[in-house]
């Protein structure tokens, strides 16, 4: 908990300094000139399909033999619990560098933090 608190403080200090420095560049700007350059960072949550790995896990969990054992409870075998599919939900930090070519159009290069799941 204490470790998380320290990370939080470092995070706020880092981005605070970054915002301050970027605002300090105001004096260097030429307001109406293009292209303009931007930096953005955002917190995103989403869900992806995952696909074949989950198809394998779900069909293996529901295979005919396991179904039979669960339903008939024979003396020669038992199936405990279920194999769960991997969640496709994720939360990531996304950062992007943008170049505004004119008031209407901009291009951007972005990346985000790695994300994964295991069970």
């Amino acid at each position: 908990m204490e470790k998380r608190g320290k990370h939080g403080i470092r995070f706020i200090i880092f981005w605070g300094c970054f915002l301050f420095l970027s605002q300090a560049l105001i004096g260097l700007r030429a307001e109406d000139k293009y292209p303009r350059y931007y930096f953005s960072f955002s917190y995103m949550q989403g869900k992806m399909a995952v696909g074949d790995l989950n198809t394998y896990l779900v069909t293996f969990n529901n295979n005919d033999l396991f179904k039979y054992i669960r339903e008939n409870n024979p003396t020669w075998g038992e199936v405990q619990g279920n194999i769960l599919p991997l969640s496709g939900k994720y939360a990531i930090w996304d950062i992007e560098l943008l170049m505004e070519i004119n008031p209407k159009i901009r291009i951007g290069f972005s990346t985000h933090s790695p994300q994964g799941k295991k069970n």
Partner: peptide
């Protein structure tokens, strides 16, 4: 070939800062 399907939706909020 087996695949990992990245198709999906995401939503987010953030900050955008003009650099220069």
């Amino acid at each position: 070939k087996a695949n990992l399907n990245l198709t999906g939706l995401s939503f987010g909020i953030g900050l955008k800062i003009r650099l220069f």
